[in-house]
Design a protein around this nucleic acid. Structure first.
Lengths: 511, 511
DNA sequence: TTGTCTCCCTATGGGAGACAA
DNA sequence: TTGTCTCCCATAGGGAGACAA
């Protein structure tokens, strides 16, 4: 199969910063599951497969191309993903393609986020640069000069270059952005509470760094959403689309589904925070989730950004029940659609996220490995109902998952309390210390005790090397899968699909 | 037939000012001819009836409702007109409806236009109010005060109120708008060369005046056309529509036509200067034009705004030929479609307007009556092929007119050299002195010799009582028609339709 | 009569250190 | 270390008469 050239016009890193997702962007040529599911921001009920006159409520697809785009008015990032259904036929060089893509991303990328204070956003002057930001992102100043000053040129997600005067002055001394900052704030219509993200990325081959600046807005209304882009989206051929009010024309869903069923290429729009995890999910992620025996009592965790964007942290909970829904086609008596009801340890934060898809959460290891980012590998027991060494959808015939049920308030909102619903491993290093079952406040302490070079426990974060974080626990399992092994947080998971209404508490945990 | 309530949200007068048309807005309940013809800005070839798979290339329609709208970004005025085809059945109280509408408009309306000078448009200060504008439009200042000053509140076509400080100061004294003017210029993004229109209108029943302010932009690009409105237009059910690039989706034309043929109500969008005269024309205007024996050599005139908006003046010409086109349906051997080729006396101004519809021009009286605005009435000879006392379309069966053929550059442009293509009598009084066959420069001189209370020969105009100008020569003939009489500029016109290819020079002129 | 100039006052923007949290 | 304050200067905005077309 010919895979079209990647024509991402935007830098994926700054795109990801603005999108507020640490989720992996599907690589050209990779395999994903596509679930014909709309962004149903208006109705709290998730689009159920039974409401679509389709025979295939999912499809394994090859990613033909991914276009990273951003609304020029709001800098809101979104993507156009072209997919082509693949049959169960053997799949060639998937790993190589992903390898190529990921290795290209593996360069040094450091980012820093700060929520704008009133002083930052007022037109009274400049921007207070946190020391760690200046130290980790900006080129070093010549401190022999008086005052030390330089001009920074940063590109935004639109490719527009912004110049800021970076000066180190005042008593006591501090880093400030002055000239140029006001123009930036006014152009982007930033207010206190919005966030800026600074990012540096090693130049392709060169020794220098490219600087980027991105924004994330607070929950206030999107402002004047760019209508041209809305139109673009609405006019897009046979694609998923979201109109100005967030409704999804089911016609377009049906059209995409029709093309999918016909085995023909089609296009979907991906609005981060409104649903890639919901309808375009990497093959290995789905299959890993499928390999788990989900039952009430299973401890799970989910990575979400904290309210202040400062870090992506884990929230833990317990599976309360495993619901299964009929496809209404009647052909699947033992419904494969699973919806996990979770009782969160911190229900106040996650009160809107009571039900999740299996692939949205991770199992919590029964045996923590707080000191080792690479816990000892165990071999995976592969059951006879799912052969991970083949990639055809035949092996999935009895393995459906329920569509997600995130309620209205959450979908499409920016900067929500819970803003990122990645299926993937988050962007910071805390994760490696979070793999324990001991409760909720572990992270703060670990964080504090571990802060040697990382950010202070304030409103900002440095995200170092954001992409290799997909590596150990998200990418490596893929390799293991294709070799017939499956390893998840040092735990071997029994792969076996119980009957529905089976509410056994048993979780495989022979660590 | 039930006629829906008039829900014009905008003041028709200021709407008309902004639209740059002195043409009459169809009244609810009035009868019009609808010609299924698009705004074909992109192609210079007029949409011909043969290109549409329709059996009726026109229809007599009842106006159900007219919504006057304006693009909030550009103040560009347009209208949504709902029409319902009417059969040849007797038509009741048309005159009464029009009477009611016109008499409501007959109140004192005075407007004044000025093209912004660089000083007006610069942010260096205020606006120089021409004395005549201040005298005729603005409330009188208290000249005993020092300085005489007041605050004016004017409403624009969007209904937004703008406050201006109106002061009479300087040596020598002059009227100025200061505070508030700059905000207006910036908000509307006005530049030198754009025009402002001030208008006063007697309050409904009260003794005071309502003040309005409108704008007309120069030929520069429309700026950011409001996409929301574009969308509104595109989504409008079965209406005529124009998309952002000015193309007309022929699907929508066909849809309107389909509804028209089915005798069902439909909706058309009217963009002034892009074509009301072309496809929605008052019944009596069409029928008056039909009653004329059009042949080569006939002297005609057409009222157009001058380049500086200062006045609407007449341009004269001679019919060079009368083209007739087939409907291609084959059922009309003697094609009723007429297109008048005009040789203008001032070809340099009207080089883009070589062909017109009969209703776009007026016959020139062979005998001028320079001193009398109401020349002696003569009775109209009614031919047997067109009975003006009935209004069914049966009487029109052999009376088609060609679609207009205004070329690209003209349609949709703002502030063109020739900007208004009204079928109606223009807005000033010059017309009454222009009814002569003696050439082109008559008007200037008449104008100069007649300026007692009207505007000076500068860039501005007072338009007094803009609506009663439809009266004597446009409205009265209507009445005459319905009484079986037809009178046009003191001349009795023989109503008789010659065979095509008949290029007789004869024009009825028994004055 | 009115377009443009220059003058000049005021409001605002925004860059600086002081200071405190 | 950094958020906010106040200070203060530079500039733009805009209201005034002078003057000329």
């Amino acid at each position: 199969m010919t895979v079209s050239a990647d024509h991402r016009s935007l830098d994926p890193h700054i795109w990801r910063c603005c999108a507020g997702t640490s989720g992996e962007i599907p690589a050209d040529g990779s395999l994903v599951y596509y679930f014909p599911h709309g962004h149903s921001e208006q109705s709290s009920a998730p689009l159920s497969p039974s409401s679509l006159p389709i025979t295939k409520p999912y499809s394994l697809c090859r990613v033909l191309s991914v276009s990273l785009l951003a609304n020029p008015d709001s800098d809101e990032a979104f993507a156009k993903i072209r997919l082509c259904p693949v049959s169960a036929a053997a799949d060639p060089d998937l790993d190589e393609i992903i390898d190529a893509n990921d290795s290209g991303d593996l360069h040094e990328v450091v980012s820093f986020a700060k929520i704008l204070t009133p002083s930052d956003a007022n037109n009274g002057g400049g921007f207070s640069v946190p020391r760690t930001c200046a130290d980790s992102i900006f080129p070093e100043l010549d401190f022999k000069a008086d005052p030390p000053v330089q001009t920074l040129s940063l590109k935004d997600v639109q490719g527009i270059t912004w110049d800021f005067r970076h000066i180190y002055r005042g008593t006591p001394r501090r880093h400030l952005l002055t000239t140029g900052w006001s123009r930036f704030v006014n152009s982007k219509k930033l207010i206190a509470g919005d966030s800026v993200i600074f990012m540096k990325k090693k130049c392709h081959g060169g020794s220098g760094y490219e600087l980027f600046v991105g924004i994330r807005r607070t929950g206030r209304s999107l402002g004047t959403a760019n209508l041209e882009y809305m139109k673009l989206e609405e006019n897009v051929d046979s694609g998923f689309s979201r109109n100005g009010k967030g409704r999804v024309p089911s016609k377009l869903i049906l059209e995409a589904t029709r093309l999918m069923e016909a085995g023909r290429p089609f296009e979907v729009m991906y609005y981060p925070r409104v649903g890639l995890p919901e309808f375009v999910i990497k093959k290995e992620v789905v299959e890993r989730a499928m390999s788990v025996y989900w039952a009430a009592g299973v401890r799970v965790k989910m990575s979400l950004e904290t309210e202040d964007l400062s870090r992506t942290r884990w929230f833990q909970g317990t599976v309360a029940s495993v619901e299964a829904k009929d496809l209404s086609a009647g052909r699947l008596q033992h419904s494969p659609w699973r919806m996990l009801q979770i009782t969160w340890d911190e229900p106040e934060v996650l009160q809107n996220v009571r039900t999740v898809n299996p692939w949205q959460v991770e199992l919590i290891s029964a045996s923590p490995h707080p000191e080792s980012p690479f816990p000892d590998m165990k071999k995976l027991r592969v059951s006879n109902c799912l052969d991970l060494s083949t990639e055809g959808q035949g092996s999935l015939a009895s393995s459906f998952f329920n569509y997600n049920t995130f309620p209205v308030g959450m979908q499409g909102a920016r900067h929500d309390t819970v803003s990122s619903l990645s299926n993937f491993i988050p962007t910071n290093t805390h994760q490696f210390f979070a793999e324990n079952p001991y409760g909720i406040n572990m992270f703060q302490e670990l964080n504090a005790s571990h802060s040697e070079g990382t950010s202070p426990p304030s409103q900002e974060t440095i995200h170092q090397n954001s992409l290799d974080l997909f590596g150990p626990s998200a990418c490596n399992p893929t390799r293991n899968c294709s070799k017939g092994y499956f390893q998840l947080f040092g735990q071997t998971i029994p792969i076996y699909q119980p009957d529905e209404d089976d509410d056994s508490d048993s979780v495989g945990d022979e660590g």
